[in-house]
Amino acid sequence: MGKMDMAPRLRAGLLQAVIKFREAGILVFIVALAAVVTLRTPAFLTLDNFRDILLNISILVIVALAQSMVIITRGVDLSVGSIIGLTAMMVSFVVVAFPALPGPVAMVLGMLLGMVLGSFNGVLISFGGVPPIIATLGTLSIYRGLVFWYSRGTWVNASQLPPGFRQLAKGSVLLLPNIILGAIIVVAAVYYFLRYTRTGRDIYTVGSNPDAARFAGIRVQRVIFLVYMLSGLLCGLAGVLWASRFEAAQTNTAAGFELQTVAASVVGGVNIFGGSGSVLGVVLGAFLLGTIQNALTLVGISPFWQLAAQGLLILLAVIVDSAILRRLQRFASGAQRV
């Protein structure tokens, strides 16, 4: 094939560079931000503060990974916040009634409940053919409504929750807080799943070209069902951790969280049109969101600006992305003239 071979190799290098650039870019951004903040507030660059950031983003990381898997298949799960709210409430009810229930059992219960809720999304989308944005917009309302119906408007507060349950998030193993440990385990598991299992690879395959995936004999419906089920499962886990960490289950627990998870995914370089995205990127994306929030507080900027900053960051991320991609495409089309 003589003349065909040179350019792609060069271009492939460039594309990989861009993907790495994405992750490196976030890192550079974080470091720069840290430097500026540290100059003004030395308290920023301490181990304690670093731990604070990690504590704050642990749940976000777990759910953002779930969201990313869904986005990679060209979908979106707008119901994550409602699933977290519902599982947090239901599990809290159970642990209040049965204080002796071991923490891990509560976690498994939460995951099971979340899995059922996620499976419902999955059935609607993969077998029912309802577009993801509609199905999960619907279940966002339904699940949140169920929280109200279930709780009859009441909430579970810290004094009701048994100490064992509260320790679930607060406790630590070898100085590492449980909740951070949990996030690390989820990150590792999702990484292994996406990288080293065929089903994990199928998620990228389906998102990259669904028609071709069907032709290649991949059970597309099943893969799509699976990502929503997994999303529900991870949200269930997040719900338990949420109730434990904030020592409460309220009717509005995690309301609006879906947008933060999409934000972390997009900032982390997951392609909103599906097909690509990396675990490392999503973790960094969530970390960046957490760092900004933390830094704004430390520097003494009104917390009211935090939301605006988060929005700007999302805009910045897509603008930079498209600028790089466009330049790359121009280069690629130039190089294609062999």
Binding site: Y196, R201, S208, I218
Partner: peptide
């Protein structure tokens, strides 16, 4: 092989060749 190539643009060549049939050793790709 259809008129419009049906590859997976986000995957590399190797995975496109072995899509859905990736070699597995000890349970991992």
């Amino acid at each position: 092989i259809y008129q419009e190539p049906s590859l997976f643009p986000d995957l590399d060549i190797a995975e496109n060749i072995f899509v859905g049939r990736q070699p597995v050793q000890r349970g991992r790709v």
